[in-house]
Nucleic acid binder design. Structure first.
Length: 194
DNA sequence: GGGGAGATTATCT
DNA sequence: GATAATCTCCCCG
């Protein structure tokens, strides 16, 4: 559907930090397996922690595609991580979901049967949803993806991003601090409501 | 339940 | 040749 693609391009054609905040509460499914986004991080082209920092490379090329493009990369040679592209060079890393759909499929794919950790982390959620390089550079508006915004008015906080060594001062991680399905808790001090 | 080591490989310098 | 947007397991208590 052309209207759907246009809606999604519009949704992601915005400031990457605003989109990262806005994505909390949205529904994300792959082949009908997925859940509610509860944790994200923003990455920008002028951000030393971003894959797009030194311009397009074979790996980061999808980050310079149309808003709403899916960017998948291999992390630590072991895990897949999934991002949604915003404006060129900008993308939001999806770090955790609250599982709602296809939980039995997730349990099958995940070696560790801890329900709380099915989608609690960027590597875990791609494993649970069956995301790999095959999904790289494809539009979020097309199958097998399903994306539905669901704005969360309050209760979202910001904090420093996880697992990076550069630009650690930026509070570009967003999430629902009370959820038990986060990749890691938000610390008491520092972060603030957004 | 918390800290630390090791896994494992594409990517870029 | 070093690094990396991570995860799991093992040890300790």
């Amino acid at each position: 559907m052309a209207a759907k693609r246009e809606f999604i391009e519009n949704y992601f054609n915005d400031d990457v930090v605003a989109v990262a905040r806005r994505l909390i509460g949205a529904q994300f499914l792959v082949n009908h397996v997925g859940g509610t986004i509860i944790e994200t991080e923003a990455y920008a082209p002028d951000d030393p922690a971003s894959h797009s920092f030194r311009g397009p490379t074979p790996r980061s090329r999808p980050m310079f595609g149309a808003p709403g493009t899916v960017y998948v990369y291999r992390s630590y040679g072991v895990h897949w991580c999934v991002n949604f592209v915003c404006r060129p060079g900008n993308a939001v890393l999806i770090r955790a979901l609250f599982p709602t759909d296809g939980i039995e499929h997730m349990i099958e794919r995940r070696a560790v049967p801890d329900r709380r950790k099915l989608c609690a982390g960027p590597g875990r959620l791609t494993q649970a949803l069956g995301i790999d390089l095959e999904h790289n550079e494809r539009p979020l508006s097309d199958l097998p993806f399903d994306f539905a915004p669901a704005p969360v008015e309050s209760g979202v906080i910001a904090g420093p991003r996880i697992g990076i060594t550069k630009a650690t001062d930026l509070a570009w991680r967003f999430g629902l601090p009370d959820s038990k399905y986060l990749s890691r808790p938000f610390t008491k001090n520092g972060p603030s409501a957004v």
